[in-house]
Design a protein around this nucleic acid. Structure first.
Lengths: 195, 195
DNA sequence: GTGTCAATTGACATTGTGTCAAGTAGAAGG
DNA sequence: CCTTCTACTTGACACAATGTCAATTGACAC
């Protein structure tokens, strides 16, 4: 397993990341990653116990590089609940295209692999907390639409921000990223915010 | 490949269907299906060229048993566009829980297998046609909300009716089926139908 | 009876993951 | 200069799952 930040480990993570990029078709085998990283296949197992764990660590690595947590936290600085909702939607959706490749891979693996499922669920739970916080501010301002409970509003916002939803409209229907963000924001305002 | 409706073929399809049922964890190997069907593993290859094709045929078999096409067609009999929209949403969402297991399996396989991807895409394209037809009736009645084009309205309705969206709210968030149907219908009315 | 057809049996190739053991190269330190 | 430690390589192997192949069985029809 060796030290947490060895250059070889970095090379492997970088290669995995690159191979999971949306365009490069998701069949990233251990040997592919090893070749891309310029190390032996066995070196991968010196740093990660298995394929699943390698991909989980890759997502953590991406999170660290992009500073997701920080970006999502910025939405906390908004004064009104509505502004916070907008900021959160914008910040999260800006992140989605970057993580799409690995997200798809992990969710696919989650079908069979319990660890992958758990890692993914945790990730989605984190995102949901952000949704809940934004809705909480809306409630505080007395602006949550009356037909939704706090919990239900959180649930639907979370579902609208899901990566699969982004995939359907942006990748399969060809919407632009900008149009998609505008769409979700409209949706959130019209359905969740009281007039 | 043998004849299209032999009893063995039926047994295999039934076993595959049963093993792909949502609750029974999606790891359905060829040997599992053979055992469940009470035939040898090789018998599967006498009726289906490979695992992908077996699952594709299983979905077709389910469609036939449930009579999806007919049920979805019934929404055509609605007189107003709004009624048709409601009917279509209701008919499709009633079907989703039944096909969830195989849907998940096929979409997972689609990540690696081109044939599975194509079969799934075709299925989703069929569903989208139903969306387009409902929206067309709305347009005919002059009731489509002005901010959406015909195409965009079709796209969003299609995305809302996606199986993954159902999965998020019903399976992961624990919404009841009835609440979910009501939610999507509210969404469609408030966002797509002009006041 | 004989032929035919579906199904079984058992062996095998292939691909990918993960494990293991022996060997190597280089840096650190005496 | 020599040892020793560590990270990495090499090559072999076990294992699971898909898919292929050939020989065999058994039932039914003619």
């Amino acid at each position: 397993m060796s030290s947490a930040n060895s250059p070889t480990r970095e090379k492997i993570l970088k290669a995995a990341w690159q191979l999971l990029e949306p365009q490069s078709g998701s069949a990233a085998r251990m040997s592919d990653i090893a070749k891309a990283a310029g190390v032996s296949r066995q070196a991968l197992y010196l740093h990660f116990p298995n394929r699943t764990e390698l991909f989980i660590e890759t997502t953590k690595h991406m999170d660290a590089v992009f500073g997701v947590q920080e970006k999502l936290m910025e939405s906390r600085t908004a004064t009104t609940g509505e502004a916070r909702l907008d900021a959160y939607i914008r910040a999260w959706l800006a992140y989605v295209p970057k993580i799409f490749g690995i997200a798809k891979t992990l969710t696919t693996m989650a079908e069979i692999d319990v660890d992958a499922a758990q890692a993914w669920d945790e990730r989605m739970a984190d995102m949901k907390e952000g949704c809940a916080a934004a809705i909480a501010d809306l409630v505080r301002d007395g602006r949550l639409a009356p037909q939704y409970s706090h919990q239900q509003a959180t649930d639907v916002l979370w579902a609208w921000l899901s990566i699969t939803q982004w995939e359907l409209l942006v990748l399969k229907c060809g919407w632009s990223q900008a149009r998609y963000v505008a769409h979700v924001q409209t949706l959130a305002h019209r359905m969740l915010v009281a007039p």
